Simulated assay, not measured.
Amino acid sequence: MKHILMTGFPGFLATRLLHALKQKYENAHFVLLVHPSQFEHANDRIKDLDNVEVKIGDITEETLGFSEGDRVLLREKVTHVFHLAAIYDLAVPQPIAEKVNVEGTKNINQFVQSLHHLEKYVYFSTAYVSGDRTGLIRETELQMGQKFKNHYEETKYKAEIIVQELEDVPFTIIRPGITVGNSETGETSKFDGPYFIMRILDRIRLMPIPYLGKGDVLFNVVPYDYLINATVYLSDAEEAVRKTFHLTDPNPHQARDLYRMICEELLGKKPTWTISPRLVELGLSLSFMRKFFGVEKEAVEYFRCPTQYDASGAKKVLEKGGLTCPDFKDYVGNIVTYYKQHRLDQDKKIHIT
């Protein structure tokens, strides 16, 4: 019988991953390591689920907040660990990112190494551990002398290094691209990342719409259902042991085309002129502008980084399971429709400072 421990619950991806894993492993027992601040919310999420228990903990503590009794029991029981807990905010201050993303992962690693029956450790990284690198980024590459656009990227990079350095641990590292809503329903938890395009377009809908610069770089987005399904498959694939996978779009669109498709779906018209991304970034340096548009200025940088993420390793393994990444043009209508239906939902807006 599989005993699965997961961090990051009741976050959106962890919640969806829990349901997907329960479908695959009907008799598995799940332990969810949940921060005290999320305990009530987590319990609400699992009230109709069997074989799922919430344990209060904190990944920034060396003991993870577990009692000695819990640690002894878990060492004997846990077969799979899925580590999703992290600070994902592009504007996160360095000390917070370091404590949660790096120290937290170090503590999870120590716990993983203590398990007597571990079958798989799945660590959620990000494709953007590539930092400011340009050109083709391979799944086998990590420490390439890169610098970073923000503390989120840098601390996820540091965390991935210490996972890769684990000896005799059957890990699988997941590097997602920028994640958007469900390809079929459009559902998402937060309007961040690419959704900032929709927020800006909403604000300027009555004026002639500009492109954000040339937009000739590739902009890599993936729907969360592909990410979840791929993670479940890789967590059980022998070929995935001690491997790293880019869960990115193997055929991404240029930023300009992605922007145009969103504009056409949201406003029913195409952009007709071009504004410099530097000018947009300068405007977003002002707090009142960020709050007006509901956008972090750090997001603009991803529209001008000439990077291509090689996903050949992931593609080779996932095709055996019948899994392929949907093309953005085939689901853009679904994510824009969901945005239009929920654009006023305060719970889906990100906090802008």
Rank of each mutant, 00 (worst) to 15 (best):
F148E: 03
F288S: 03
H3L: 02
Y302Q: 08
S285F: 07
D327Q: 15
D89F: 07
A255F: 11
G8S: 07
I59D: 06
Q38R: 12
C325N: 13
Q308E: 15
K214S: 12
G8Q: 04
N43M: 09
L267I: 00
I335V: 15
E40I: 10
H246D: 14
M1I: 00
T172Q: 08
K316H: 08
E61W: 09
L323G: 05
I108M: 10
D70N: 10
K77C: 02
L17W: 05
D50P: 12
M198C: 15
E167N: 02
H151R: 01
F245H: 04
F171D: 03
G213L: 02
R75H: 02
I262D: 06
P36C: 09
D257V: 12
D347Y: 14
R133I: 07
Q94C: 07
H80W: 02
Y152G: 04
G186Q: 06
G213F: 00
K158C: 00
A240E: 01
K55C: 11
A159L: 02
Q341A: 14
I46M: 05
R205C: 05
R278P: 08
I335Y: 07
K329P: 01
E281D: 13
Q146E: 13
F9L: 04
V241F: 00
I108W: 07
V222R: 06
V102I: 07
K297E: 15
D216R: 13
K2M: 10
L84P: 06
A299P: 04
F171M: 01
T140A: 13
T126L: 06
V78F: 13
M289K: 02
T155V: 00
I59N: 02
P36Q: 11
L166D: 05
Y309G: 08
D216W: 05
V336C: 05
I262Y: 07
E298H: 13
W273H: 10
F303S: 04
E103F: 12
S287A: 11
D225V: 05
I46S: 00
F328T: 09
P223E: 05
F66T: 01
G333E: 05
L33H: 02
L115C: 03
K99I: 00
Q38G: 12
R16I: 04
L218Q: 14
Y211L: 07
G145K: 09
V52D: 02
L286H: 08
V336Y: 09
K55M: 15
F39Q: 10
S285T: 10
A255P: 06
E265A: 08
K270W: 03
P10D: 09
L212K: 01
A97T: 00
F196A: 05
L218G: 08
A230H: 12
D330W: 03
R133D: 03
P271D: 00
N229G: 15
Y331F: 12
G333S: 07
L118C: 06
S189F: 12
P176G: 12
R290Q: 15
I87C: 14
T185D: 04
D58C: 03
P93M: 00
F148D: 07
K106L: 12
I209V: 05
H246G: 11
K329D: 12
L49G: 04
I59M: 10
K190W: 13
